[in-house]
């Protein structure tokens, strides 16, 4: 058989078998193989993509958390400073009101003292008058007729006392 002469029988069998193989492989081998390769590649792709997404999501959450924490910290700071202010104000108010009250009390006390003093003075005056009268009575009883000048003197004395 010539090496370079295509042999009819072999061409015949090759054409038939190759067509059959091509058909069978295409339908029952390449189709499922290529399909599942594609599917696997797609699923790997998807998995990678979603991993990337999850990573982004994580980063986002983390930065959110950070932000919330920061806000909370600021809020706390604000609350604390507010509280401090309130406290100071309350103390201040308390102090002021206490002082007013105290002043009031002091002034009323003073007024009372004044009035008490006046009363006491008046009492003393009366006592003094009565004492003086008693004294004068006694003196008069002893020397009423003696000297008119003495009576005048006593009255002037009394007058002085009244002036006071």
């Amino acid at each position: 058989m010539g090496l370079v002469t295509p042999d009819f029988g072999l061409i015949f069998w090759m054409t038939i078998t190759f067509l059959a193989v091509l058909f069978i492989l295409k339908k029952y081998a390449w189709k499922p193989i290529l399909k599942s390769l594609k599917e696997r590649e797609d699923s790997i792709d998807n998995a990678l993509q979603s991993a990337e997404k999850a990573k982004d999501e994580m980063a986002r959450l983390k930065s959110d958390n950070e932000k919330i924490l920061q806000e909370a910290r600021v809020e706390r700071e604000k609350l604390l400073s507010d509280a401090r202010e309130v406290k100071e104000k309350i103390i201040e108010d308390a102090k002021t009101s206490a002082k007013i009250e105290a002043d009031k009390m002091i002034s009323s006390a003073k007024a009372q003292i004044e009035s008490e003093k006046l009363t006491a003075l008046n009492e003393i005056k009366e006592k003094v008058v009565s004492l003086s009268v008693e004294i004068a009575e006694k003196v008069i009883n002893k020397s009423l007729s003696s000297d008119k000048a003495q009576v005048d003197y006593a009255s002037s004395l009394l007058k002085d006392i009244e002036m006071n």
């Binding site: 069998w13 078998t17 193989v21 492989l25 029952y28 081998a29 193989i33």
Partner: peptide, 19 residues
């Protein structure tokens, strides 16, 4: 030729099944 296509079909059909 027949033996070789038998081997090819056997290999790739079983591989396709595995897939």
């Amino acid at each position: 030729l027949f033996i070789s296509i038998f081997i090819i079909l056997w290999i790739f059909l079983s591989v396709a099944k595995a897939y």
